[in-house]
Nucleic acid binder design. Structure first.
Length: 584
RNA sequence: GCGCCCGUAGCUCAGUGGAUUAGAGCACUGGCCUCCGAAGCCAGGGGUCGCAGGUUCGAAUCCUGCCGGGCGCGCCA
């Protein structure tokens, strides 16, 4: 249970009573009323701005409203203090039993702690991520988008959203023809020809396997055949091979998709024509000439008649071309159709996870979604910034041309799936991320993966010791929920419960903001609070978790430790990281 | 030139309408292991939240302008 909601509901109930009593006028909008933890814990456990945001509409001073509310809020038995502070904040401090109840809830919920129906009313949501071109293996940059999208989807599922994970296969453009031609060279090479790879084709060694596969399938049938004969089958074969590799890479990372949508299939099914036809019917497609870009005009610029989409009507800077001069659709046109397809499938919210270099594309895509859904469907584009690979503070040099770029597989093989996943989520998506090989495998506080895993392992270590000392005692979460929690009286113990109790709200706000990195930060916070308490036991023996001769206190502390382990595990699982019970 | 993102401690970053004293890690200084895992903890110093206006009871957070960095800018996907 999100205790912020619980208290907010309480405050609203009291305000309604004040309305009934005539102290507050009717017809107030409680929407802006918020409840937050104060920055300074001395101000209380929670703080509400209710009196201040309602003052104007109520025609009363904030402090008057606050005093009236405080008088009522004080009366709750779980409330230790309710005070008016500053210009009219209301600070609440809850008694210990309130927090015992939260800990009990966490233990009873177990693996489902923090799970909610928060998003159930928000309609189906589509998260499209990775969508790497099927022209080569995935590199580190792709890993960030992959992990981000996967964790976001899990986060949304956890908070009750109806989520589909989707991959868009760009298998229709010029780049897959380049792939087919590159594969053709490797095919000839496999047949014994000496080949040279001209610039413009993909030089990667990884295509050798494709060439050999083609020989196996077609023998020498296309050896000296004209392109028109082999282009189609070679493209199909090469794309399938590349997608196979990409799926393998995604599996390495533990990333899964529900739906793979092929651009080629969209085109074949006439969905592009249909979507563009719809826009045309709305009067949003026209023939016109674009202004040259201001300032830095390209050398070869000349005015050109184009088929354009009126994206400016929906907030874009210029209208965008949808058709090439040879009559074929631009990438944008097929993307319009693709998003039309998602809209038709009934999603109320679309999330696209892209690389930061596609930033210039956001407005036109949002314009297209707005135009096609009549403003009913929201498109949130999450841009993932670059990942800078480092080795002890020095950037790892990468060059596609020299073939020294680092693949996703290289990184996962070297540091492991859990480390990659966790590190990718330790920054906001729009901030550049340094990924230091040395650092992420280091076992210290500097390395957030180990820091959090260590806290989890420590919890389990304590529980293992407890099991040894108290054989036969049930230390499961469900059993511990029923022990004498009021034995937990130390401020540091309550502090740990409070961090744990903030989880439902944290996970909910992370989901709402589409920001999975907040889970990582919450985990660090919980881990730090736990480590602090653990160490306190070194100085004050009375604070150790296992207390000789006082089984009821020990059990209460096991409840706390179990709760902590549970919170850490739940958060890690949302990130797709396996919580470990023992470090080796 | 235009658009988007970013600018918070020496470094890497959280915090995006809430208040006295803006947080964390690293680095720096000092302390804590016969003791549930020291792979950890505690304490201390360190900030005009890029600059200037504005909105507001209240701004790191919203708006405008400027400065600095990144990305992008007509048939590449």
């Amino acid at each position: 249970m999100n205790y912020f909601n619980l208290l907010l509901t309480r405050i609203k109930t009291e305000m309604e009573d004040l309305q009934a009593a005539g102290t507050l006028p009717l017809g107030l909008d409680f929407g802006p009323v918020g409840l937050d933890p104060p920055k300074d814990p001395r101000h209380g456990d929670v703080s509400t701005n209710a009196a201040m945001v309602l003052a104007k509409a109520a025609g009363k001073s904030p402090r008057d409203i606050a005093s009236a509310l405080v008088a009522r809020l004080k009366a709750y038995p779980d409330t230790e203090a309710a005070e008016v502070a500053g210009p009219g904040f209301i600070n609440l401090r809850l008694k210990a039993p309130f927090w015992y109840e939260r800990l009990g809830e966490a233990l009873l919920a177990g693996d489902a702690y923090g799970r909610s129906q928060f998003g159930a009313s928000k309609g189906a949501i589509n998260v499209e991520f990775v969508s790497a071109n099927p022209t080569g293996p995935m590199h580190v940059g792709h890993a960030r988008g992959a992990v981000f999208g996967d964790a976001l989807a899990t986060l949304l599922e956890f908070t009750g959203h109806d989520v589909k994970r989707e991959y868009y296969i760009n298998d229709a453009g010029a780049q897959v023809e380049v792939l087919a031609r590159s594969a053709y060279l490797r095919y000839r090479e496999a047949l014994g020809d000496k080949i040279e790879i001209p610039s413009g084709l993909y030089p990667g060694e990884y295509l050798k396997d494709v060439g050999e596969g083609l020989v196996e399938l077609y023998k020498s049938r296309f050896h000296n055949a004209p392109e028109s004969e082999w282009l189609e089958p070679f493209r199909e074969f090469a794309v399938a091979e590349m997608m196979g590799e990409i799926r393998d890479d995604l599996e390495l990372l533990g990333v899964r998709h529900d739906v793979f949508t092929s651009e080629r299939a969209l085109v074949k099914q006439g969905k592009v024509d249909a979507a563009l036809g719809d826009l045309k019917a709305k009067g949003l497609i026209y023939e016109g000439v674009l202004e040259p870009p201001k300032g830095k005009e390209p050398e070869d610029w000349e005015p050109r008649q184009q088929t354009l989409f009126r994206s400016t009507q929906f907030g874009d800077d210029i209208d965008r071309p949808v058709q090439k001069s040879d009559g074929s659709w631009t990438y944008f046109a097929t993307d319009i159709a693709y998003h039309a397809d998602k809209i038709r499938r009934g999603f109320g919210t679309l999330v696209d996870v892209w690389g930061a270099d596609h930033g210039g594309y956001v407005k036109r895509m949002q314009a297209a979604v707005k135009a096609q859904s009549d403003g009913k469907v929201a498109l949130d584009v999450k841009l993932c910034q670059l990942v800078k690979l480092m080795e002890r503070g020095e950037p790892v040099k990468m060059s596609k041309r020299a073939g020294t770029f680092v693949t996703l597989k290289d990184v996962v093989d070297r540091v492991g799936r859990d480390v990659v996943r966790f590190i990718m989520l330790t920054r906001r998506n729009d901030a550049q991320l340094d990924f230091d090989y040395a650092l992420v495998t280091e076992e210290s506080r500097e390395n957030p993966v180990f820091y959090v895993q260590y806290a989890h392992a420590r919890c389990h270590s304590v529980l293992r010791n407890a099991a040894k000392e108290m054989p036969g005692v049930d230390l499961s979460a469900a059993a511990l929920a029923k022990v004498e929690l009021p034995r937990l009286t130390h401020p540091d113990e309550l502090a740990l419960i409070k961090v744990l109790a903030s989880w439902p709200r944290s996970v909910e706000s992370a989901a709402e903001a589409h920001e999975p990195h907040r889970v990582a930060f919450w985990l660090r916070d919980l881990a730090a609070t736990f480590h602090a308490l653990w160490n306190r036991g070194k100085e004050e023996e009375a604070l150790r978790f296992l207390v000789d001769g006082d089984p009821s206190l020990t059990l209460a502390r096991m409840a706390l430790v179990r709760g902590c382990a549970l919170g850490l595990a739940v958060g890690l699982r949302i990130m797709g990281v396996t919580p470990v019970e023992e470090l080796r």
